[in-house]
Design a protein around this nucleic acid. Sequence first.
DNA 1: TTTTTGCGGGG
DNA 2: GTGTACGCAAAAA
Length: 806
Amino acid sequence: MLIFYPFDITYKIKNDHAIIYLYGKTADNSRVCVTYTKFQPYFYAQTDASPIDIKKIRVPYAQGTAEIVDIQQVEKNFTGKSVRLLKIFTKLPQHVPIIKKELERSRTTCYEADILFTRRFLIDHRLTPLSAVQATGSFTNERSKVPVFEATELVSTETQRQPESRILAVDIETYNPGKGMNMEKYPIIMIAFYGLENSQPFKKVLTWKKFPVTNDYTEFVQGEFEMLQRFKEIIDEYKPDILTGYYSDGFDLPYIITRARKYQLQLDISLDYTVLDNDKRDIKEIKINGIVHLDIFQFVKHVIGRSLKTGSFKLDDVAAEILGERKHVVDMDALASVWDSQSDALAAYAEYNLQDAKITFDLCKKLLPNIEELAKIIGLPLFDVSRMSFSRLVESYIMTQTSVHNELIPNKPDDSSMANHRAKTYVGGFVYQPTPGLYENVAVFDFRSLYPTIIISHNISPSSLRCGCCNDVIAETKDWFCKKKKGFLPLVLEDIVTRRARIKELMKAGSNLMLESRSNALKLLANSFYGYLGFAPARWYSFESAENVTALGRQYIQQVIAAAQSSNFSVIYSDTDSIFMRLGEKSTADARSFVEKINATLPGVMELDYEGFYPAALFVSAKASSAGAKKKYAMLNEHGKLKIRGFETVRRNWSVVAKQMQLRVLEIILKEKDTKKAVAYTKELIRSIREHKIPVEQMLISTQLTRPIESYGSIGPHVAVARRIVQRGTPVPPGTIIHFVVAEGSGVVRDRAFAPDELGQRKYDADYYINNQILPSVDRILEVFGVDIKNESALHQQKSLSAFFG
DNA sequence: TTTTTGCGGGG
DNA sequence: GTGTACGCAAAAA
């Protein structure tokens, strides 16, 4: 008997039979491989044909003949109804699509024929990666880098202490003269590793030219071939559970594989000696049997990217935000020539290489708890969850729950259904447009998890839609959902919410990283549910469900608005799930009791939260309209902090002086409620700019080049500056941020834009900055108070601020 | 204007 | 591996 924690799974065909291979660790931290031979591939068919006739089907194909080994009759739930199906077992996994295609030639619909064999195994045996599994059986002498245990029985068991994973990060530097990459032509010149060995950092940089170093981690080898051999050895010796890289699916590992093939070097780092091979598809995923290859870039892009402030997923930007640590700065364009001249400067590149491996390691370590908890909840290996988008994570979770509820998994929509799904649109959240103005004593309410709670409380799902037993019609859509029998999807979502509530309770008693990560993973799944229903390629796509979720959302928010108004609160603004209202004569206690009153009327788990009280709030008008702008406001909370949404204060392509000024004007208005002071401040700043008293650093405007410099048709100021930088011999690749100042003179702006070091004795163009940076950043704010800052003569006509408080 | 292509990440 | 991203911006039609 053996208890182990699986983290990787694959299967192999031996003697015309599929064998499952589970790789994992035992509680005492040793690596093990557990095999299982008794799992048979299958799918479902809905057909009038007799099982006896079907069982005779034989389909020859390139590698043999596809055969059916057994057929069972089963019943499953499908969109609220019970359906009779044949469960068809085939000899090998690859026979499933072949037999399925044959059956579909004769009025037969097949289901679950595209569920991968290893996933099917995990779902059916209720085995969860990283959770303890008890195996009965014995060790064999199969050739492998870790002991192989052949199991006759596998049962998931009470989780003990999950062993910690050994992580090794890898990063390569390549010889790359000119532009573009060429893996076939140019060699790898350095490979860096970063790990942890007995709580000490494990550092190593391999390279094949000698240069003086002051560190002990650089190892010099004969040439690229020897370096690749050492790469293999180091991985075999370090014995990582997780091999991590940044874009290693698309760059580092394909590069290493391509170079190894050139030397006919067998890259057999897999625990079963399988030689690594390039993925030939568009979507590269490099799998190493027995070692989890985690490409951190994939997880960042698919899962946490949306919650990051940085729009760029470059290693430098992501590490800066998540770790507060950056890449080293070296001139990458010069690497090839430095390498050719064997310069001492190569030492700096070795340090750069190691730093990349280090921050990749740190990112992996930091994000691993989140990936592990997702893997445990969804029941898929780390390799898979780390590469999945939100919708696929939700879908995989729902798929694991089908076996609990005896539900049949719907097929993926075909191309034409998907096109139909995409073509249909429905109305989104309700927005109550604000009237521009400064408001005092504002209370903000919001619905806690509005869409998930609507789905649960109203039983929104395809199987409960327009049932035969109920008739509680949703006013706007004339649809209804069953009140008696809970649908499969709302049950699954309710379970997620309940599990998260339990974890929140545990966290009150004592929080830890695992509970936090688990709570985050469940929150992510719950919040993705509504989006999944309206996602065109979703198996459980349901236009009516998605449409009715937003319809009910609008209905509830409008009910709250109406109730607030009849209780003499005046509503200022509302967007989808939040309501902003002026207290007027009422107190915050009145606001809280209003929330209680509303909650007494809400069904199921729906709940309105009292989000907070704000002594002052400013709403400005939208461009070219007197109506208030959506999602653009500034508020002052009770602790004197500003909450700013939608203003330009954070945008890069505004000068520091304009951003600071906008922030200061908002502060004066919200904290001191003194429009005259704000106007005076603005005029004073304009005067300082006119007199060139503001340092030029504050005048820098930063714009990112999004394309190669040659490809720009219209030459903006940043392009003009970039062109001159190129002329001086420094390449300016796409993504470079160009800083420039607009100087005095005649002609178009682009002829007067200069990089800071080109500026010399030139002065910045005060009028340009006043008209294009200062005034646009404050005129919409001051306009609220009747101040036309663009027309100075109008400054005398300003109303007193008190006129704006009711 | 609509449709098609190509990029991101990596050196 | 019982499979074939995705969402957007720029270029082309």
